[in-house]
Amino acid sequence: MRRWLRNAALDAVRTASGLAALALGVVGAFPETVSACSVCFSAKNEENQIAYLASTGFLTFLPLLLVGALLLWVRKRTQDTEQPRSPDHS
C-alpha cells in the first residue's frame, strides 16, 4: 500500500473515532426523557441513580484496564527476545 494511502486511512480512523467520542459526549451530556417513556424514572433517588452510573462505568472500564495491563506486561517481557524471521513472503 502506498504511504499516502496508509496515512489517509489512519487519518480517517482517527477522525472517525474522534467524531464517535464527540457524539458519545454530546448524547451523554444532554439526555432527553421522552414523555411517552413510562419507565424512564425508576431510580429511587438521586444517589441510587449516581450509584448505577458509577458502577456501570467501573465495571465497563475495569476489564479493559486489566487486559491493557496484561498486554503491557507481555509486551515488556517479549520485546527483548523478539527477532525478525528471514522473510519468504511479503
Partner: peptide
Amino acid sequence: FIAGIDPRMANVFTVT
C-alpha cells in the same frame, strides 16, 4: 432500556 435506567446511560449505550 425499559428497565428504567438513567436516560444518560441509555443514550450512550444506544450509540455504542
